[in-house]
Design a protein around this nucleic acid. Structure first.
Lengths: 327, 327
DNA sequence: CTGTTAGCGCATTCAA
DNA sequence: TTGAATGCGCTAACAG
């Protein structure tokens, strides 16, 4: 059997190759008869147009490049899932890369996206490293879950989320506050602190359970948490906000082994509202993934269709707190 | 700035386009001088060759199409992760699709793979539906985690895994046995049963907690398990093997609420050894994902390189039981 | 309504 | 060692 190309279909249907093209692209102005014949041949032989040729010709690939930093956190999995569904709906495929928090790998992925003529990029960045270079690209790029200024971004309002948690704790009568995270300049933490200060409380830095930047899985997080607990002997706070659900989970497990009761002794609130939180009954800040993804794709489509790049947008969605037994 | 093409690079470096091509493809027989100049220009302008054109020309895309049935089970996430890493190492990208257990969606994904000229396909199939069609394709395809006969496959020996669990329970002194799953013809269950029968025990079908085929998330599984527990009043088995870790988890949670103690009242063993099992201390059959993925990619590479398609292979790796507190 | 034609960006053959 | 020429499969004028 010959390789299946338009030419081949044309021959079989007794028309010219361009007529086949017209039929496939749903162009008007094709004889009913001819169209039926072409369609039938296509059906019979199972012909599928070669995307590489289409891409080359149209400079449009119908691919969206997605580059994440990790898949360990279930949050990102739910994200990919939603992205794939949403992209599929509008005829796009997802080329998935994982930078694993490595800026070099990230840049390689971007290069690959360029080479493959992706129409758009969705990025969970490793940091600032490649942002400038990326913003100079001709390919529209949306950053998810964080703000990286020259680029468009869609994410939750982390500052506000931190505030909500802080206020929630205060209303519940707590007077001493803890936090688990990797970076004290993080917006979640800043929002949390500001809620405390605005209400006449303060945050004691010794209650910041600092995880190493590189502690990107349960095991490493757990180790850091254990280290902290072993060091401080007794906890000087009665409530705890964690940077994500995994940290909340690991803290709660470590606490249980030490007979620290959640929520009686310590209230815990996590972040992301992944199914980990649902499974374990952890209160958590909900990330409206569906909405975020829809918004992201909307902006991306807009950027892809309208060459004229207007000002970049930073969209911050409103966080909500889902309360469960841990608080 | 002009669009970056080889022609453009050639002009800037004062050589012909074909020389640029030679440099890029590491071909011998290029003047040292010229090569340096070309390389420098490429570096300066940040040129990346157009993959669409390369694909068209070489009929080779360096893409591996991956189509899963779900990402709800963390097992599949770990799988994708490993696939992406391994593929990247040998210069391939992953085009990720999710059929969501829908054969029609699955076939659409396959069509997309064909259109994109992927060099190979890795498939977690929705069932038998498309297997015949796929096996007729010119694209090498490997099925993961199950056997689908005309195709190559790599997976765990489910039958043996079932046996191991059955024998383990028997050695621990259990006399009555339970199972949670969606399909009683499943190899895991068959292996489990055979271990029982070989040792003079039997499996009472009323101890089969039947989940609906469509119960593909925690919530639905939980509902089915609750229904069962409400129906039977008291449990007629002292140990339980579940089709995957999520089911084990949900059973344990439901049990806890009913004051059924694990492992005192009931021993539980799950399947996949995902991090859910690790987090929750659930004994589980370990899936050697790394090894499976490496094997899969090896076979795929072999198939991609050697046109001559020899007999299909069905690789079944040996399962191991990881014991934790639940058993 | 339809066929002919000209590239899209690249790898590769053939001459030089 | 190099450049010119060809064609991968397709879309989109253009001419009929």
């Amino acid at each position: 059997m010959n390789k299946l190309t338009m030419k081949e279909i044309a021959k079989l249907a007794n028309v010219s190759q361009s007529t086949v093209s017209r039929v496939i692209n749903g162009n008007t102005g094709v004889n009913e008869e001819a169209m039926k014949r072409v369609l039938q041949v296509i059906e019979e032989v199972g012909y599928v147009p070669n995307k590489a040729a289409q891409t080359l010709k149209k400079s449009q690939s119908n691919i969206i490049g997605v580059c994440l930093t990790e898949t360990y956190n279930p949050y990102f999995v739910e994200l990919v899932d939603a992205l794939e569904s949403e992209a599929r709906k509008i005829g796009y495929s997802i080329l998935l890369h994982n930078s694993k928090h490595n800026p070099i790998t990230e840049w390689e992925s971007i290069q690959n996206f360029i080479a493959r003529q992706v129409d758009g990029i969705i990025l969970v960045p490793t940091g600032e490293y490649n942002i400038q270079r990326i913003s100079k690209l001709a390919i529209p790029t949306i950053v998810m879950t964080q703000n990286r200024k020259p680029l468009d971004s869609v994410g939750l309002d982390h500052m506000k989320a931190g505030k909500i948690v802080g206020e929630k704790f205060i209303h519940a009568g707590h007077k001493t506050f803890g936090y688990v995270g990797t970076n004290p300049d993080d917006d979640k933490f800043l929002g949390y602190k500001s809620a405390l200060y605005e209400n006449g409380f303060s945050f004691d830095l010794k209650n910041y359970i600092q995880l190493e930047e590189t502690s990107k899985n349960n095991f490493l997080m757990r180790r850091d948490i254990e280290d902290y607990l072993n060091k401080v002997k007794s906890l000087d706070f009665t409530c705890l906000f964690t940077n994500n659900d995994i940290m909340a989970l690991e803290f709660m497990k470590a606490a249980r082994e030490r007979n620290i009761k959640v929520p009686e002794d310590i209230s815990v609130i996590g972040f992301d509202d992944t199914y980990l939180a649902k499974i374990m009954g952890i209160s958590s800040i909900h990330q409206p993934i569906e909405e975020m993804v829809k918004t992201t794709i909307d902006i991306l489509v807009d950027r892809m269709e309208n060459e004229v790049s207007s000002e970049s947008v930073q969209i911050k969605l409103d966080p909500t707190l889902i309360e469960r037994m841990s608080s």
